[in-house]
Amino acid sequence: MNTSRQQPRVELPELDAGLTLVDIDSDLGVTPVQSLLFDCVFAGTGGAYWVDAAGTVQTTRLRELAPDRRYLDRIHVARGFTAYQQTSLLDRLAGEHVTNPSVVVATGIDRLYRDSDVSTPHAQELLVRSIAALARVGRVHDVPVIVTRSRDDEFTEPVVNAAKTQLHCRDTQFGPRFTDAAGDVDALVYHLADGWVQTTLAYWQEVLAHRAQMHDAPVVSEETAPQIS
């Protein structure tokens, strides 16, 4: 392990093709998922496709996190505001509009299906259909598909069953840490050895700037090069 002050270890879990369910400690918000998304964009040649049903596509945060604004052109977003729109969007991912993705993200996959205007059996069917659509996109394009849910309960059991990997991102005293139940993944994103916790935004900005340079140096401009000390 390289512990030099110039080259700190910055780790994000490497995602396999197919469905990965990520449960995140609520204190951390959606930023860990946005970071995984950026990381796949740095490493790949295509873009990211993000279908949001949780109201979490806030471009302010994406803009602040992006080591270079040009990355925002490679992230394609669409928001479902009703359970029906979300179902359409997840199916649309399998159509010709989506070309050469590096990663697909679906945040809050269960949220709109819990709305009161959808009956429970119908909601369950729509959820299962949406999970199947996502799994298909992962297969067809051979890319990671990141899924988050708004609640861990019986309703979202089908997501757990369909996921190849289930990650948990926890807020630890040394910084955010991704683990999986099988013990295959254990990534402490960036070790805050001195216990000094920076603002969440500054922390992830540094992490991403570092990852971008690691994968994709030519795109990262001089001014935004990592300043981790």
């Binding site: 496709y49 993000w50 596509v57 471009t59 994406l62 803009r63 925002l72 052109d73 490679r74 992230i75 394609h76 977003v77 669409a78 928001r79 479902g80 029906y84 729109q85 979300q86 179902t87 359409s88 969007l89 649309r92 509009h97 989506v98």
Partner: peptide, 9 residues
């Protein structure tokens, strides 16, 4: 059912 189109962030 009609959703918005994908757009760059």
């Amino acid at each position: 059912w009609r959703p918005e189109l994908f757009k760059p962030a």
